[in-house]
């Protein structure tokens, strides 16, 4: 129980009322978003399922995948999560909405790497209200009891559920990764943003010491980068500057404090990679 297996579930049981067409089949870069979400998810979890309502059983687009059918009709997303936790209560579940056109693999990986198994769930903090984002989150087996209690008392909002529970909250590496698309206008905006805008860059300062300073040929530098974490930055600098020290030997400092390879970087941060020390 200390390390439950991680399964994944894409929520595609909704009625897409505001979109007035089946959201799961909206294409981005030619790929229906249900297919895209499953492709991203399946690469990161032991098994990936699609959540459907009973009347969607016959839908050929959904029948191609392993499906989990809602136990109770019309509960919305929380009903899909309930069905998954009931089908495999021994597993933790990465629950994913299907309408996240900006979602990328690194957002899922970061969530999994930072998963807090001892808590009820691990989720991203919404950039709108600071509350947990419930539909790109990992629900541990222990989340089943509070989830059933919420459903039993008619509280069907998964965001409200998570905000009252012991949840590990993470900052998004990519601020737009969980923006969702509910209307035709939002869809049009998302399609053109995906086609046009390059990923955002940050202005960072890097400091080099000892052997790394000699390899880089400089003590510091400033650069514009798409790297979102020290880890991505170091991978970039290894090829840019020919650094040969493997990351397993290094520590990271951010703004003159010891930091972490996965800390999201902010505009203007100073990052230092510290080779093995040898004082005394």
């Amino acid at each position: 129980m200390s390390d439950p297996l991680l399964y994944g579930l894409v929520l595609a049981g909704g009625r897409s009322r505001r979109m007035q067409r089946d959201k799961a089949m909206l294409p981005y870069a030619g790929e229906p978003q249900l297919e895209r979400a499953l492709r991203l998810l399946a690469a990161e979890v032991a098994r990936a399922f699609v959540s459907i309502s009973a009347e969607q059983r016959a839908d050929p687009q959904r029948a191609r995948y392993e499906c989990i059918v809602d136990l109770t009709p019309d509960l919305g997303p929380i009903g899909g999560i309930q069905a998954a936790l009931t089908a495999h209560p021994e597993c933790a579940w990465l629950i994913l909405a299907c309408d996240l056109p900006f979602l990328d693999a690194s957002t899922l990986r970061h969530l999994i790497e930072r998963r807090a198994r001892g808590r009820i769930a691990t989720a991203y903090r919404s950039r709108h209200d600071g509350q947990p984002e419930p539909l790109c989150a990992i629900y541990e087996p222990a989340s089943r009891a509070p989830l059933e209690a919420a459903i039993a008392s008619g509280r069907l909002c998964p965001r409200a559920l998570l905000s009252q529970q012991d949840v590990e909250l993470l900052d998004l590496l990519e601020p737009l990764a969980l923006e969702n698309v509910n209307t035709g206008a939002e869809y049009g905006a998302a399609v053109s943003a995906l086609g046009r805008d390059p990923p955002p860059t940050r202005h960072l300062r890097v400091r080099y010491f000892a052997l790394l300073r000699e390899q880089a040929g400089r003590g510091s530098e400033e650069l514009e980068t798409q790297a979102r974490t020290p880890r991505e930055l170091y991978e970039q600098l290894c090829s840019l500057r020919g650094l040969t020290l493997g990351p397993q030997f290094l520590r990271v400092a951010i703004n003159e404090e010891f930091g972490d390879w996965l800390t999201p970087l902010d505009e203007g941060d100073t990052v230092a990679f510290l080779p093995p020390v040898a004082g005394g």
């Binding site: 052997l211 040969t244 020290l245 397993q248």
Partner: peptide
Amino acid sequence: WINCEQCAAAPAHAEYHSH
């Protein structure tokens, strides 16, 4: 550089220790 040179010669693993 003491403690660094052997590390630089070692093959890099994609291992990132979190502190």
